[in-house]
Design a protein around this nucleic acid. Structure first.
Lengths: 189, 189
DNA sequence: GCACTTGCCTAATAGCTTTAGGCAAATTAG
DNA sequence: CTAATTTGCCTAAAGCTATTAGGCAAGTGC
């Protein structure tokens, strides 16, 4: 019989595609096996278990997202950087809802420390260099930005803003304006 | 054999407790049957299916949360009301993480329209009466507040702020201050 | 006290997860 | 270039969850 050529990497990529198509929750070892036209047990030579699969997809998504944000941020500062960061985040979530959900998976501490999550934190802090905040305020601001972006994107993905005026895009722009103004007001400079 | 006295209401309450103990994702018809020392199939006389169970828990959580928020809001206005709303929300999530997760379940439109979700929306708008915003701005603000509160609470529950200074409580206070200032600045008055 | 309804049970099907052990294909060694 | 070894996918099997169908006994209404 011809071998399917499974590897952890191919399985992870296929799992990410599956997540975008049917939702991260529905990503299952069985569904993945079907996609490769292979028996379920065969995947267990390449994956420790289903949690391993989910974790790999999460790490892939975190990398991709960090790469996008880094590219968007290059050469920008102040409100420009803030908007670029926010848009990169939101666009990724809309293009890849399954991967975005994966990126929110709770990782165990060691895995998290070795993940691209670290770059995310660094980039968020980098944005705030455009606003002169004291050290504790910077942390508060990091937490607030994370909350707003994650909160907005997940409410939007859940369809929360779908059937009401004004358009979600307008609210997004208003919120970015507001956050910029807020941070400038908090600035010590 | 002695009857267990199952009803949809008792099952829903027990399901909510189970959610708080082991997480909403782990709430399963089987686990619930074990808790009542009853065979799994017996629950199907009281519940349509497992989705029905989850939906009932979600509706219960939405009611409870709305009741709490309403009580917290009574007699308050302006920043006081904003903080009371936010704290009620956050406290509920910390006391009842499983129910909070349930409250975020995506409901189908008719169910959602008949749920306490409607009260939540009304109360959020009520808070904003303390700040003079134009109609479209009020919607933007509703969306922003929803995003920040939901985002912060879910990041906090996921343990995102656990092992870093400053304390989460400080960030929360700073964020509420900031939101109040932001809304006052946006005010047309 | 009897008929009826209701509540929980047994039985059975079906899907997902995971482990153990087997055979054949690919790779390495002599 | 064949023989030994490793690797990749398979079959088989057990355990858990969800769901439906049909049965019997406990409670209810007359």
């Amino acid at each position: 019989m011809v071998r399917a050529g499974l590897t952890p990497e191919r399985l992870t990529r296929a799992g990410a595609e599956l997540a975008d198509e049917v939702g991260f929750e529905q990503v299952t070892v069985s569904a993945l096996a079907r996609r490769f036209d292979v028996k379920v047990a065969s995947l267990y030579s390449h994956l420790k278990n289903s949690e391993d699969l989910r974790t790999r997809i999460a790490l892939l998504a975190l990398e991709e997202l960090a790469d996008r944000v880094a590219a968007a941020l290059a050469g920008r500062a102040g409100k420009d950087a803030l908007a670029a960061f926010a848009d990169a985040y939101r666009d990724y979530a809309r293009e890849h809802p399954g991967r975005y959900a994966a990126a929110r998976l709770r990782l165990d501490p060691e895995t998290a420390a070795a993940s691209a999550g670290v770059r995310h934190a660094q980039m968020t802090r980098a944005i705030l260099r455009g606003y002169d905040l004291t050290e504790p305020e910077q942390t508060h601001a990091v937490r607030m930005l994370g909350s707003v972006f994650h909160g907005y994107v997940s409410l939007e993905l859940a369809g929360g803003f779908e059937h009401s005026a004004p358009d979600s895009q307008e609210s997004w722009a208003w919120i970015l304006d507001s956050l910029d103004a807020l941070l400038r007001n908090r600035s010590t400079a």
